[in-house]
Design a protein around this nucleic acid. Structure first.
Lengths: 210, 210
DNA sequence: TAGATTGTTAATCGATTAACAATC
DNA sequence: TAGATTGTTAATCGATTAACAATC
């Protein structure tokens, strides 16, 4: 069994891609899958796919490919899906609710256990079976539930405050959806999800004449 | 004035970061800003920042730094903010509404002009002053409004269909929030926003003892 | 067998970082 | 002047891709 730590960041980021593709395959009709097929479906280089798969799994067989089921198992294992990570989401606005509703994350091993909000309109509500509690209860609840991951979907000006609260409650990984650069102690990891940071690529698209 | 086409993808992706940082600075008190200061604030390498800024602007002055205002202008120019890009959003669920509500995109030059949805609950509503229209009107309206960018926030199984419709309506750039690999003609550019693709990085975070 | 496929080694490419001269 | 800063050149690093042998 491979140690995820030895896997490059670039490869790690492609794992969810592979996983969700493999899950779209009809289980009975695709016992085996080739790197060639995967690369074609995802518009990736075939050698790259093979290298990625070599990094996470036990390898395939020439002419036949990989055992689909085994591959799914290995990818999930490397991604860290095996032991579910429990997360708390703070800020149940539209974006927060969108994340609460997204069942794909469960596939990746992320379990958003609870959400917090300040607004009376949201407190007490349920989204996708997840309860929205008063932000006052954040520290107590997170400690009590042993939450490791915090998801920040509040307005920018509240982000650092919420971040500090989460850390006091024992959170060591933060998924940050605001544009604020969060200040955290060294042991805490922040993953910035800058939606829109790739927009310049879109704007700079020029149509080549055909 | 630099041609955006000569700027690397890595640099382009950092431009929004610089821009939003520069906009947080008090206008009167920071006529000049150094690459050193920017790099410290954003936890980037100082040389990298200087190279990025060299690629977009006319350069700074030793000991003094860059003219903040000029820098903002140059970055906006390179990102393509100058001529607003008009976009249509399809799928006004929670994620769609979150994007409609997000005013930051305007700063980046993206103007979501109109939204479409199938659900009677949403049709006719307004989010952040943007109208949600019936999906039936998609093709006519997009043609009529001369929309170039389509944003897809529908469920996965509807993604390809919506994509085809958008392209028929003249859209040439697509911002795709589903996990589906869209099939498009060569002249159309797809930007995949795979929220969650970096989660494996978060899961693989091990706390070093301190 | 022939051909499709894997996996490895080497080459290429692009991006980051280090070193340092030039400037105000 | 001294020191902070820019900008460039060279070195390093990491990721992608090409070439090819091994395998079923």
């Amino acid at each position: 069994m491979k140690s995820p730590n030895s896997i490059s960041a670039a490869t790690l980021k492609r794992l969810p891609l592979y996983l969700s593709y493999l899950k779209t395959l009809p289980k009975d009709r695709t016992v085996n899958i080739s790197a060639t097929a995967i690369s074609a479906a995802l518009s990736l280089n075939a050698v790259q796919v093979r290298k990625d798969l070599a990094a996470v799994g036990k390898g395939g067989r020439p002419k036949i490919g990989y055992l689909t089921e085994e591959l799914v198992f290995d990818i999930e294992n490397c991604m860290g899906c095996k032991d579910l990570s429990y997360a708390a989401l703070v800020g149940a606005g539209n974006l927060g609710k969108a994340l609460l509703s997204c069942d794909d994350f469960g596939q990746y091993g992320l379990n958003i256990s609870v959400a917090f909000d300040k607004s009376e309109n949201n407190i007490g509500a349920t989204v996708n079976n997840k309860h929205i509690l008063s932000a006052d209860k954040l520290e107590d609840m997170c400690k009590h539930m042993n939450i490791r991951i915090g998801i920040i979907t509040v307005p920018s000006y509240e982000a650092q405050g919420v971040c500090d609260k989460l850390i006091r409650a024992g959170v060591v990984e933060i998924w940050n959806f605001t544009s604020v650069k969060l200040k955290v102690p060294q042991k805490v990891m922040v993953l910035d999800e800058h939606i829109g940071s790739s927009l310049p690529l879109l704007f700079n698209h020029k149509i080549e004449n055909n």
